[in-house]
Write a protein that binds this DNA or RNA. Structure first.
Length: 878
RNA sequence: GGGUGCAUAGCUCAGCUGGUUAGAGCGCUGCCCUCACAUGGCAGAGGUCGAAGGUUCGAGUCCUUCUGUACCCACCA
């Protein structure tokens, strides 16, 4: 007899098991030649991160995989770690020092970095602790940081290797510039958003003939201050005669030429385009081609600079207003049309990105992309769900060079030095260690590149740099390539694609074979959950209130696609945990102190077990088989639903209800406790805490359930006959209950039941299981006869092939009973009609598979028999 | 401008290779605080599976078109 409280309270248990797991070191992985490796690298959360629902979902998914594989005998490594998140983290600390009224420039680089490291030390492991609370079974001893010394070396090594291969170069190009963060961004970091803007039509007049003009259309009138040409399509008849003519740029009075370029679409706007080579990627290309002047009219913070004449000093928005006003004054603004277009925004601060001409470092991507395309096309790497394959390939096939330099301070400094004496801008010193002098002129007057590398330039090494690459070692050899990667769809380009390229380039092998892409967590209205919208549900709050198991279980329940979350959705997990708790409680209360070997293999002679036991064993193993299959295919919610339905719908609702008075039987105890134990194992990856808790109630001296062996399928115990027989019994009980409810029989009152069995088998089945029927349907006296006259004032029930009577003198109303049965006849009639029609169809008989025809025929017979019985019952009422 | 999802009960979603009278949770109705659990039990109501065509003996499931909706990508100013 074990005393447990009637409600499961997760908080008392969860911390206890966290400590237990840590003390027993159960999540630690070591290269072990006797086992197969299974490894996952965590998508490293930002060092600024706090746990949100997306993390909770993604890390639960990974934990399910890891715990499942650990229990099925793999040496499992789940590598945890944190990303330094360059821009994001720098922004946080900049805000912090802003409160002191200072900027990073005030502090200077060294002092600012000191503050960043202090910040990292203080807050850097917040999210790690939160992931632990979620139950994530990472090998925490290995926790990595993308700016660890080892890791930084890997980053430098990578840069140098690619540079030497000619895959990294420095170039003057138009890049995405965030005027607020004041750094370059990659194309992926500029996120396009639809803007309802305007298209402005501006007149540029000819130098020769100031009364005549060409009208250009632009969405960004302020950039006209940097125009150095107007372009038209060479085939455009309207403008052919003007090519080569000179225009006077309004407001600036610069002479600019009309050039011809097929980049110009004659159908857009007026067919004449103003060309601003320093502020637009297309114009930049034309500028190069036609040898135009590049006039940068902006400061790095997007204020107009001295090149903008008397507009200098204005912000881009003010500048636009002022330029438009000036144009209007000069009657140069022909018209304004509404126009929506997509504009890039900084993915960190949401500021509108400026296409900006500057000198940056780039990675040449095409050569890296090709092998990464091949491995996916060949199926060496598979995406789950598979539709993401196309998204990946499409991006890879159109890949652009990657801008990797950032004008911030927090990150991996670019390992490049320049010499002031020989001005080697074009032959920089690229070195893993800080050089002492210029190798050319031996000058000591050298300085390092001011910039740092894109955060993703370190993250793309994650699957192997966390294993101390480039150093050769056992772990790297054993755990690489990793097995699976789970992440959000928006990370495919940033990270997944780049890891595949890096893995192939540096390790010569894929970084993982399976990529699982999970859904987006949204609120009940379908909006993305975010702090700024104020619609976020804090997973920690759910853990506090309902427990980590409930959070995990509820999140996975509908994780097949995007999740629409509201607080009530977590009740399903809480309720299920409570159900598990109470079912365990029932069993524990009925097991003698000290009895603890419930190995199902110990059941002597399984054939002699009673029907419910044979049935529940069959149901369990059938479920296990399906759960295995679902997990192997990354069908998490399906696996979970299978266990839920089995445990609640079969084990609790039926099995436990049938054995409440049979706990004195040893076999019953073994089956009940044994199935529970096996279910706990099956459930452990989903709900690690409560399963561990109950496991130890049954096995007080056992080790962690996390390292217990996953149950193995015993196909012999999937007893089809028992499943069929139990179905007949439960159906009988259901129909009796229905009749009781229909006639408002007091729930505590017992009734009599007379069953008519047509065969010896049926009769035996009912007799053997009369105990269950009596308890579950509240029957006082159950008699089974081959031939049975209808008792007086009795209700008639048909359950499958069985007909039975329940005497209800004084309760039953003959007219109402007629109505009840007639409704049932009607209910079946439609199906009978449909079936017989199908069975008369010659094409169906000829073309459908035999089994299907047979099945339909059998169904029709059963239904017809049932209707016949119902009709007889109706007659008997007269 | 390309691409990808989704549309099934009042709500949120299952329904895998086409084959019983389409399922679950929540909500709703009725009855039960029965000694595992009211975070519970039992019974029940509720669906012409977005629309129109097509393939097939047979379509929620496959194909085409359409409508609505969500998201992703893209240097037409």
């Amino acid at each position: 007899m074990t005393e447990l409280s009637t409600r499961y309270s997760p908080n008392e248990n969860e911390d206890k098991w966290l400590k237990f797991w840590e003390e027993k070191n159960v999540f630690h992985a070591q290269a072990n030649p006797d086992k197969k490796p299974y490894s996952i690298v965590i998508p490293p959360p930002n060092v600024t991160g706090i746990l949100h629902m997306g993390h909770a979902l993604n890390n639960t998914l990974q934990d399910i995989l890891i715990r499942y594989k650990r229990m099925t005998g793999f040496e499992t490594l789940w590598m945890p770690g944190i990303d330094h998140a360059g821009i994001a983290t720098q922004n946080v600390v900049e805000k912090q020092i802003a409160k002191e009224g200072k900027t990073r420039q005030d502090l200077g680089r060294e002092e600012f970095l000191k503050r960043l490291w202090e910040w990292k030390k203080q807050y850097g492991d917040t999210i790690i602790r939160q992931l632990e609370k979620l139950g994530a079974s990472c090998d925490w001893q290995r926790t990595r940081f993308t700016m660890d010394e080892h890791y930084s070396e890997a980053v430098r090594h990578t840069f140098i290797t690619l540079y030497e291969k000619g895959l990294i170069y420095r170039g003057q190009r138009i890049i995405n510039w965030c005027p607020r963060c004041q750094t370059a961004l990659s194309d992926e970091e500029a996120q396009h958003k639809e803007i309802n803007g305007s298209l402005y039509y501006i007149r540029y007049s000819f130098k020769e003939n100031p009364h005549d003009s060409v009208t250009v259309a632009t969405t960004r009138p302020e950039t006209m201050l940097g125009d150095t040409a107007v372009a038209v399509n060479p085939t455009d008849k309207r403008y052919k005669k003007f090519i080569g003519k000179t225009l006077i740029l309004p407001l600036v009075n610069r002479e600019i030429k009309i050039i011809a370029d097929e980049l110009v679409d004659p159908k857009f706007g007026t067919g004449a385009v103003k060309v601003t080579p320093a502020h637009d990627p297309n114009d930049f290309a034309m500028g190069k081609k036609h040898d135009l002047e590049f006039i940068n009219i902006m400061h790095p913070d997007a204020r107009l600079n001295e090149k903008a004449g008397h507009f200098s000093g204005m912000s881009r928005a003010e500048g636009r207003k002022a330029v438009l006003e000036a144009l209007k004054q000069g009657n140069l603004l022909e018209k304004i049309e509404p126009h929506t277009h997509a504009v890039g925004h900084c993915y960190r601060c949401d500021t509108m990105v400026e296409p900006y001409l500057s000198r940056q470092w780039f990675v040449k991507m095409k050569p890296l992309a090709q092998p990464a395309i091949d491995v996916v096309k060949k199926g060496k790497i598979k995406f789950y769900p598979s539709r993401w394959t196309k998204v990946y390939l499409n991006w890879m096939e159109n890949i652009q060079d990657w801008c990797i330099s950032r004008q911030i301070w927090w990150g991996h400094r670019i390992p490049v030095w320049y010499c002031r004496d020989c001005h080697n801008d074009n032959a920089p010193i690229v070195s893993k260690i800080t050089p002492q002098e210029c190798p050319q002129c031996h000058s000591k007057n050298i300085y390092q590149d001011e910039d740092v590398l894109d955060t993703w330039f370190s993250s793309w090494l994650w699957p192997f740099a966390t294993l101390h690459w480039p150093e050769k070692n056992k772990d790297l050899e054993y755990f690489y390539p990793t097995s699976a990667l789970s992440t959000a769809p928006e990370i495919i380009f940033f990270w997944v694609a780049r890891m595949i390229m890096a893995g192939l380039e540096f390790m010569g092998d894929i970084p993982f074979s399976d990529v699982y892409i999970h859904g987006t967590v949204r609120d009940a209205k379908g909006r993305k959950m975010s702090k700024s919208l104020g619609n976020a549900i804090d997973p920690l709050e759910i853990i506090k209130e309902y427990g980590a198991d409930a959070l995990r279980f509820s999140l996975i329940m509908n994780s097949g696609q995007d999740l629409f979350i509201s607080k009530e959705k977590f009740e399903i997990g809480r309720n299920f945990a409570n159900k598990i708790w109470n079912a365990s409680r029932l069993i524990l209360m009925n097991i003698p102190e000290g009895e603890n070997n419930f190995d199902l293999a110990n059941l002597n002679n399984q054939k002699t077990l009673d029907l419910p036991s044979r049935w529940i064993l069959a149901q369990f193993y059938a479920t296990l088989e399906k759960v295995d299959k679902a997990l192997d295919k990354y069908r998490f919610s399906e696996a979970e639903t299978l266990i839920y339905d089995f445990f609640w719908g079969n084990f609790c609702d039926w099995y436990l209800e049938t054995i409440k008075d049979k706990f004195s039987d040893k076999n019953t105890r073994i089956v009940a406790a044994g199935i529970l134990e096996q279910t706990l194992k099956m459930l452990h990856p989903f709900m690690p805490f409560i399963t561990e808790e109950i496991w130890h109630k049954f096995n007080p001296h056992a080790g962690s359930l996390a390292v217990a062996a996953w149950p193995t399928i015993n196909k012999q115990l999937i007893d089809k006959k028992a499943q069929g027989q139990m179905k007949a019994i439960t159906e009988l009980i259901n129909v009796i209950r229905n009749i009781r409810m229909h006639w408002n029989i007091d729930q505590h009152a017992s009734v009599e039941c007379f069953v008519q069995a047509k065969t010896e088998n049926e009769s035996d089945l009912i007799k053997e299981n009369s105990g269950i029927i009596k308890i579950l349907a509240k029957i006082s006296n159950l008699s089974v006869e081959r031939n049975l006259p209808k008792p007086k004032d009795a209700a008639t029930g048909i359950a499958g092939k069985l007909k039975f009577y329940i005497p209800l003198a004084g309760v039953i109303d003959i007219e109402k009973e007629k109505g009840r049965i007639t409704a049932q006849v009607k209910n079946q009639a439609a199906a009978v009609k449909d079936l017989s029609k199908r069975l008369k169809n010659k094409d169906f008989l000829k073309k459908a598979p035999k089994e299907v025809v047979e099945k339909e025929r059998a169904r029709l017979e059963t239904l017809q028999a049932k209707i016949k019985e119902l009709k007889t019952a109706l007659k008997e009422l007269f």
